[in-house]
Amino acid sequence: MQTPRSDGRASDEHLRALSVALDTNSRASGSSYVELGNTKVSCAVYGPRRPRVDDLTVNTGVIDVDVFRVPFARKRAIHVERGRENEREKDLNRSAADVELSARIADVLRACALTETFPRAQVDVYVTIMDSDGGEVVASVLAASAALARAGVEMADLASACELVRIGERLVLDPTEEECERGNGKVFLAQMSSEEGMVQGETFGRWTADESRRALEQCAAGCNRFDTIVREALAKS
């Protein structure tokens, strides 16, 4: 039985509205702003420029990714202070989750970009998460690959991504944060849509072979739909 979703979507297979704006930053080589439902991500690409660490043994270009989360892009805006703990001090340090997110986006971009076209130069990809409601990785990958393309970095293909969460027996595509919390299994897929190449796939939780195949197929379909929207935006600009 299909139940409508908490954010008003009619079906488990529906994606949230995706909007992509390009050249949003005045000083970057390429930049983008992506809204996926309530999740808002902006990305700016600087370079190619002289690398911070010049590694003579490597003859390809370097892609560096850094994710910055604005302090108020977290679920709980209110908390009660206990003892002397200071929330401010804590969020000054980058959280481990954001470092991991940077690494994941970097992996996807390195697979798509032709790094041999800018040997021993560095491209910095700065992602800012402005608001989060699930699908941060998805929005970040879409924003980063669009900004990279806009910056004129040669790429094998654009990267697109999609997430899916299993809630009970249901497979829910492009989940919100609330749906992610209710879920008991998650699949993430990043792919190059026109090459049909899977770039990064991750599953969390217990999946049977059949179920995970179905989940990946649905993710791939989601990727393709997101990819079309990003491509349209790039073609227009």
């Binding site: 930053n25 000083r27 970057a28 930049s31 902006s42 990305c43 700016a44 600087y46 420029r49 850094d66 910055f68 604005v70 302090p71 401010r88 980058r94 910095d124 700065y126 992602v127 800012t128």
Partner: peptide, 16 residues
């Protein structure tokens, strides 16, 4: 009140 420059704000910013 705290003001932060996001790394994307300019080419001169360095993350962290």
């Amino acid at each position: 009140v705290r003001v932060t420059f996001a790394p994307q704000a300019s080419e001169l910013e360095r993350p962290g």
